[in-house]
């Protein structure tokens, strides 16, 4: 995060570094929110020890920012986050979580709930950047109210030793979710579990995964769309395997419990085409530069 002064919630290791409140947005450590508002307790399993509570009550025309860093060795973070977007708001949020040095052996465990109330819209960019000895486990749930819209992108281009990501999205009536999970993995073991639950009439969702496995990576995904109501869903999983010591396993699953629902999927794992690689090398790029450019293009999805 380049300009930390504008960060609404900033945590380094296990301490809150800064909180920036603004008109229409209440930001609290989760622990204080638990004490202050009884209603928030239904969204936490237990009283949180770390993490943020962000309650967006009025329209904000610039992105809200959160930043969670690991700076010291052998830190274990246990975050419990809650974001609530009130009715009729159109909000942008950018969340960054990273370790700031190599070999810190950090652990970042985060779970959270994101509540979008009726007619609200959230564009959320979630960026992770870790180092090789870190271990990461995140578990997020999105609850989409009637007519709400979620555009969520999770990006990780610097991967830890182990990464587990669980994402669950519940779509109520006429809500729409657009989820993207983009990862470029090196020397990493990654497990991704996504669930898109279309339980509201006329709800819709698209779940896209783009994963690149290189340098002894093992990636497995388990992505599911469950259509319980008349709804539309599409699952699009694509992988790119770069080296012979990596492994990529994509498991898309569709479950339909409503005869009016329409759910589709596509999945593929490919390799870098020799022709594309040589084309770029015939422009003067060396092999690694050409691979990086092709990978960047693969991860660039609309």
């Amino acid at each position: 995060m380049k300009n930390v002064k504008n960060v609404n919630y900033w945590q380094i290791d296990n301490k809150v570094k800064n909180i920036l409140e603004m008109k229409g947005v209440e930001v609290l450590p989760g622990e204080l929110a638990w004490e202050k508002y009884r209603w928030v307790r239904e969204y936490f399993v237990k009283k949180p020890k770390q993490g943020y509570f962000i309650w967006i009550k009025e329209q904000i025309d610039f992105p809200l920012l959160t930043c969670i860093n690991i700076l010291s060795k052998d830190i274990q973070q246990e975050l419990n986050n809650l974001i609530v977007v009130e009715k009729n708001l159109d909000i942008r949020l950018k969340g960054t979580c990273n370790s700031l040095k190599r070999n810190l052996c950090g652990k970042h465990n985060a779970c959270g709930k994101i509540i979008l109330k009726e007619n609200s819209s959230l564009k959320y960019e979630h960026i992770h950047s870790w180092n090789q000895k870190d271990v990461i486990d995140i578990n997020y749930e999105f609850l989409l109210g009637k007519n709400s819209k979620l555009d969520y992108t999770y990006k990780i281009f610097s991967t830890p030793e182990e990464l587990k990501i669980k994402t669950k999205v519940f779509c109520s009536e006429n809500s729409a979710a657009n989820l993207k999970v983009l990862g470029d993995s090196r020397n990493s073991k990654i497990k991704i579990e996504d669930r898109l639950i279309l339980n509201g009439e006329k709800s819709s969702g698209i779940l896209k995964l783009r994963l690149v496995g290189r340098k002894n990576s093992k990636i497995s995904t388990d992505s599911q769309i469950l259509a319980e109501a008349e709804s539309k869903g599409h699952l699009d999983c694509q992988g790119l395997l770069i080296d012979k010591n990596s492994e990529l396993s994509l498991t898309p699953e569709l479950i339909c419990k409503n005869k009016q629902a329409q759910v589709t999927h596509e999945a593929s794992i490919g390799k870098i085409s020799g022709e594309e690689l040589y084309y770029l090398m015939s422009r003067g790029l060396n092999e690694q530069e050409a691979i990086d450019l092709i990978v960047n293009g693969f991860l660039e999805i609309k």
Partner: peptide, 12 residues
């Protein structure tokens, strides 16, 4: 020439 998906000509 092959297509390079996601990479704009200006980027190359």
């Amino acid at each position: 020439p092959p297509a390079i998906k996601g990479v704009k000509l200006s980027q190359l």
